[in-house]
C-alpha cells in the first residue's frame, strides 16, 4: 500500500487548522490557548513567585516547573484517569526542557515560574500544542525570553513524510508509522525538543527536521500575531507619565 493522499485531505506539509489566543485566563500572570484541529491546549503561567519547599530553591536563578495534564474527558477513547501518570510526568519534563533554553530566569533567584498546561480535548500532537501555548503564555507573563518556542510533530506514514499527524494517521494500520515531535526556536533555528516513536531512516529524519522547521516558522507567525492581537490599536496615549 502507498499513502497517496492524507486521510483528512490535507497537503503533506500542511498542519491541521490552527487557532491561538493570548490572555484567556484572567487570574493567571500569563495565559494562552493553542489548538491543532481537535487538540486543544490551554497554558497558564504563574510567577515568578515564592518557591516552597525551600530545598528546591536555587540561589543563582529561578526555576521552571511545568505540569502537563489531560482532562479526564479529553480523549476520544477511554476516560483518562485524572491525576499524574508516567506519561504526563515525562511530557511535563520534556516541555520544561523545551522551554528553558529561551527563558532567562537569572533575575529571579530562589523563585519559581509555574506553567500549567491543561488539555480539554486531545487528538494527537498534544505535547506540541502544549509547548506552543506555554511559550505564548510565558511571553504574556512578561518574562525575559530570548525567543519564542514553536513546536509541531512530523512523522512518517507508510512511505510518506507528513506534518502534524492526527490520531488516524498515528494509528495507520497499513504501513509503518513514525511520530517525531520537535520544538524549534524560530529565530535561531535551534531545536529544543526532538523525540521519536517509530522507525525512520537517517535520510528521512533529516527531511523530517527540515519539514518541521518550515512548519514551525508558520506556527511562529501565528503565535506572534496572537500575542500582538492582545493589545489592539495600541496608540501612544495622551498621558505618558
Amino acid at each position: 500500500m502507498v499513502y497517496k493522499k492524507r486521510l483528512d485531505n490535507r497537503g503533506f506539509d500542511e498542519a491541521r487548522k490552527i487557532e491561538a489566543k493570548v490572555g484567556v485566563i484572567k487570574k493567571a500572570d500569563g495565559s494562552a490557548y493553542f489548538k491543532f484541529g481537535n487538540t486543544w491546549a490551554y497554558a497558564a503561567v504563574y510567577g515568578p513567585r515564592n518557591l516552597f519547599p525551600r530545598f528546591l530553591q536555587d540561589p543563582s536563578k529561578g526555576i521552571l516547573r511545568c505540569n502537563y495534564n489531560m482532562m479526564p474527558f479529553s480523549s476520544s477513547e477511554d476516560r483518562v484517569r485524572p491525576g499524574g501518570s508516567r506519561r504526563s510526568k515525562e511530557i511535563s519534563r520534556v516541555t520544561a526542557h523545551a522551554l528553558l533554553p529561551v527563558l532567562n530566569l537569572d533575575e529571579y533567584p530562589n523563585s519559581v515560574v509555574d506553567v500549567f498546561i491543561e488539555l480539554p480535548e486531545t487528538e494527537a500532537g498534544s505535547r506540541t500544542a502544549g509547548i506552543n501555548a506555554a511559550s505564548m503564555a510565558l511571553a504574556d507573563a512578561g518574562l525575559l525570553m530570548k525567543d519564542l518556542v514553536s513546536s509541531v510533530s512530523v512523522g512518517r506514514v507508510d512511505d510518506k513524510l507528513v506534518v502534524d499527524l492526527d490520531y488516524a494517521e498515528e494509528s495507520y494500520p497499513d504501513g509503518p508509522v513514525a511520530d517525531i515531535p520537535l520544538a524549534v526556536m524560530p529565530n535561531s533555528g535551534k531545536i529544543t525538543l526532538l523525540q521519536m516513536d517509530g522507525l525512520v531512516s537517517k535520510e528521512q529524519l533529516k527531511e523530517v527536521i527540515k519539514m518541521g522547521k518550515k512548519a514551525c516558522n508558520q506556527i511562529y507567525e501565528i503565535q506572534k500575531k496572537a500575542l500582538k492581537d492582545k493589545y489592539p490599536k495600541h496608540s501612544a496615549g495622551d498621558n505618558n507619565e
Binding site: 529561551v102 511571553a139 525570553m145 530570548k146 525567543d147 519564542l148 526556536m185 524560530p186 529565530n187 503565535q223 506572534k224 500575542l227 500582538k228 493589545y231 495600541h234 496608540s235 501612544a236
Partner: peptide
C-alpha cells in the same frame, strides 16, 4: 517603529 508591539526574539 516607535510604540510597536514586539514579541521575544523579534529583530
Amino acid at each position: 517603529n516607535e510604540k510597536d508591539i514586539v514579541v521575544p526574539g523579534e529583530t
